[in-house]
Design a protein around this nucleic acid. Structure first.
Lengths: 208, 208, 208, 208
DNA sequence: CATGAATGAGTGTTCATTCAT
DNA sequence: TATGAATGAACACTCATTCAT
């Protein structure tokens, strides 16, 4: 059996291999990175939490940065894929936007750590070699959202005088920043939060 | 109070002294903290930028944290004061909210570094001794905004079904997160951005 | 003696065992030790080159040092044997010296790695426990050469005012140091180099 | 006074500055590098010998490599200068060669550590970034010596059938390798050793 | 008000070695 | 025979901070 399944066992010090232990350590790392920040998290922190010595981490990963890369790569690839699938599926710009937003909140629920990490380290990442894929992913995501917003102003779903650039940033910031306070298992589920935000985004604060 | 007194006392060992040089160093520190983050900024970074040796900084400040305290204290005191003045002055909840938002953008323009710092280090600060004033200030600010929102739902300025907690977070996050991309001297002035955001907040995205 | 027996015993934990695989690994190790130095060569370097994991090396050798011991022991025993055979065989001191020198160059050709290793690590080895045999071997070799030189000054083969100590070091250093630049397969074969060196040693640089 | 002398005080963490302390530490480093090799010498070794903590070394040097650079640079520049001066001064190739050799032994006497370091780390240095100057210096030195040898074969000072390439390597290796056993303050001074070597090089071993 | 030398704790990383499977 | 996970000690280097001058 083992020999017939696609080889996923990692050889050669960490680079790209994927074992159960590796995934476990990655999860611990992701959580700590999200909690305290990448720089503030030491490899000894991670190792302690995993119950091993810091040097032993290097059996699985070639560097602390590799752990970060892996977490973010997985996160961005998944998110991008789901976003692309949404715009392909939904028939109206408004339906697409609503789905994008609901998907964002669901992602915050399912991948809390990665989202928090991405939100807080984005600026720092831009200065790091080997993390260009983050900026590139952000750009592709922006294109998707902007596309939906533009289609909506043309179709009449959204207000015709909408400045899509501002609107995009406005929505993006309001939505993703909620990772700072959203707690899975709290009073409001991610679906409820999404609906609240959708209402605000659709119609604003004012009484009409 | 402590922070608003002229403070000409206590020059040795930094605690509270205030000279021209001190203010200069503080400005440099604030900028670097905002750019690279507090932890990522070393005292030598600051000293280098100031043209002195890192040890010499300790003639002006008793620690790196003291620099941070000072920057944030000044910022929060000022902001809180201006917010309080607004709610005291404005006559309707809607006018108050609009002014709060405009004031926020003006603050991002005038005190970019402090805002950026506050935005990015908030989580980290909560874990630091001696920075309880930041959380306390945030709470007081939240009370002011929530008060305005509640008054508005009662008065009929805002939609009566508004969940003020969500609305507050929504507005706060959308507004303050713009410090990440707003550039003074860019194509849109802070007033223009404020108006764009006000429109979105008032009426939402949809065509009516 | 111990090193020249067939050695089929003691396979577990490496000590002294000798299999095909073991010899293979030893060859790889010898080459890398010679190329980068013993300290700079990691067990993983060797394991990687052999296509196994570093821990697996310890099935064949009980330590990295054991690999070194083995390489050097084989080399020194062989060289010493050949040198002894030469002095036993040759009839005049001059013929003996010439043969010793030719043999040295042939050894550099046949056992490049071991010679290079011996040349570069000699100083380091003197500080290591368990490597006294290297110094001892060097002493025995020195005795052989000095014996030949002394016999030659007595017999009239060599200049009577020769300081044999200096002469020995002079020859030894000039000859063995050439392992640093001699390349098997290069323009000059080891025999040609030997003849060049013999001429210089016999008659010097000056025109007579 | 201090302000009128050429500024030799090192600013900005080590790079190029030169204070008394720095020179002291460099001397300690050079000695240990020579004794145990660069890689085998730890910064703690050096710091311990200097009576400070390892981290404190970085107040004077930006890296361990910088210490090595500095030692070797000073050594090579000096040696090259003296060699160039010799060929400019001496009138016959033979006089030049003899002076070069005497100068080499004097250098081994005066700068033992640097010579030993250069001899043993040459191969390693070739693989290190930033140490190209070592290979370049070696090349220039080789040119000088080869030039003298060629001039000597033409002038009739040296045997006309001399292969200058081999002769150069032969002399160089024999001469410089003596740093391994030459001890200042030993029975033979460096002048005596030089004369012994000159005799051997001039006329060889054989009786004529 | 600043320098220059130092501290001491900590950081990411390396590496020979062990051992259950 | 080999793997894969781990150890434990060491390594070069960083950094906030201290202090005599």
């Amino acid at each position: 059996m083992a020999s017939s399944e696609p080889a996923t066992t990692g050889r050669r010090r960490g680079s790209g291999g994927s074992s159960a232990r590796r995934a476990q350590l990655l999860a611990i790392g992701a959580q700590m990175f999200a909690e305290k920040g990448f720089t503030q998290t030491t490899v000894r922190d991670i190792a302690d939490a995993a119950g091993i010595l810091s040097g032993s981490l290097y059996h699985h990963f070639s560097s602390k940065e590799e752990m970060l890369t892996e977490v973010l790569h997985g996160f961005m690839d998944g998110l991008l894929g789901r976003f692309e699938e949404i715009v392909a599926r939904e028939e109206t710009p408004r339906a697409a936007l609503d789905s994008l937003i609901r998907e964002s909140f669901e992602t915050m629920h399912n991948e809390r750590e990665a989202v928090a990490l991405y939100q807080s380290e984005q600026g720092f990442l831009a200065t790091l070699d080997g993390f260009e894929f983050v900026g590139a992913g952000s750009k592709r995501i922006e294109k998707i959202w902007i596309g939906v917003l533009e289609a909506g102003t043309t179709s009449g779903d959204f207000r015709s005088d909408l400045n899509v650039q501002f609107a995009y940033r406005f929505i993006r910031d309001a939505v993703w920043a909620s990772v700072r306070w959203y707690r899975p298992g709290g009073r409001y589920g991610h679906e409820a939060v999404a609906e609240q935000y959708l209402t605000l985004l659709h119609d604003g604060l004012l009484k009409h």
